[in-house]
Nucleic acid binder design. Structure first.
Lengths: 214, 214
DNA sequence: CTGGTGAGTTGACTGGGTTCACCTAGGTGA
DNA sequence: TCACCTAGGTGAACCCAGTCAACTCACCAG
């Protein structure tokens, strides 16, 4: 099922000045393979090259080594995750009682987070197994995800919902709980209500960080 | 620094009937290498064989393939983790007010959990990346860890501490929060107070699942 | 001392990461 | 126009890893 280049017409080379296109193609193919394989192991330079229809060595024009290719994937996935969370946040209708809107937005963001993790186990595990060393805290892609949650929580506070922990701390609680629950699901999918259990767990967790009933 | 067999005296072969000794040696060497490397990647059959001082193929007398060697390591580590948590539980002095003892035991167990994760990052990541498929829920090594937490929580309830969630659910909350926090630490060690932050986070989390102040 | 068996080795095969010399076709300066 | 340059690749090789079949070597029973 993996896209195989037609061997009779090896591949039309990209026109001048558009060599960067191949970088995107490589990343896309790697992402697809990762989804198919479900885990990083088995994801090979040669496999990606086969899928794109190029020679393995060509990948080194765009990536220092395999690790950098993987880093590229990680960034791509973080981007995607952040975007999906943002989109979920914005898709919440403003028709609710004004005080409930920010909480609904928070739940929507975390729901999107869980859905990403459930739909893309390979990608999800990848981004958590590849810790970027260095870089100031808060600026890492992971830091930005947490930042989105902090913002969502602060909007809840501004709307009059009291938190049982400071927003920063509560965000970590929620994020870390969600991540842990997802990891547990990936480790033992049959335990604890399966995928549906994740959503209700995270909903409960969100309730837990608020002092009032939400 | 890796133990290299003296090449002039290749290795005295195990006496009859004691071939199983080598299995243990292999596991021990693999565990040591994993600690040194800090991650599963780079852990190779050939590397383990070099460390033990045997031929790579000899490993196949004791393990089907590399995956089974890794599974052996995972079980070994789960065993160790469970034991350390149990030991921490039992080391809590009974001199405290009787009502506080079970909560202190719970905190001790979770403290041991965190310490294991901090001291053995490679091992910790290993056991969470190698989901055992199949096997009824609750019987998996991971299920046993959660079971220990459930027990600890039920002892707290029996001592008169009210929970905000049912014990089973609260255990998942605590476990999953701890795991998530540790994963966050491994992903970005500099963020959020470093290792010390893990302990305080988990302590807070434990407080959070109790209705009364503990 | 002869055959059997446990314990481990040798050598080869496949496949992955990486490098380096090389090729090739679309632009470019004179 | 035409030699040349260079972006965008390719091919073949190297080394290391996982794995397997065939082999060796020591001990033991009878």
């Amino acid at each position: 099922m993996t896209e195989q280049a037609d061997l009779t017409a090896p591949r039309t080379r990209n026109p001048w000045g558009q060599g960067e296109k191949l970088r995107t193609e490589i990343l896309a193919a790697a992402a697809r393979l990762l989804s198919e394989l479900g885990s990083e192991e088995g994801l090979s330079i040669r496999g990606v090259a086969r899928a794109v229809g190029i020679a393995p060595a060509s990948i080194y024009q765009h990536f220092e080594d395999k690790a950098e290719l993987v880093r590229g994937l990680v960034n791509y996935d973080y981007e995607l995750l952040g975007t999906q969370m943002q989109a979920a946040d914005e898709s919440v209708p403003a028709a609710l009682p004004i005080k409930d809107v920010p909480v609904a937005r928070l739940r929507a963001q975390m729901g999107a987070y869980c859905q990403f993790a459930i739909d893309n186990p390979g990608h999800y595990r990848l981004i958590y197994n590849n810790r970027e060393r260095g870089g100031e805290p808060g600026k890492s892609p992971l830091g930005r995800i947490v930042g989105q949650i902090v913002n969502a929580l602060q909007r809840c506070e501004a709307a009059g919902h009291e938190l049982r922990q400071p927003a920063q701390r509560a965000a970590i609680t929620v994020f870390v709980g969600a991540h842990g629950r997802v990891a547990l699901y990936h480790a033992a999918p049959e335990a604890g209500d399966g995928a549906a259990g994740i959503y209700s767990f995270v909903d409960d967790l969100i309730s837990l960080v608020f002092a009032d009933q939400v």
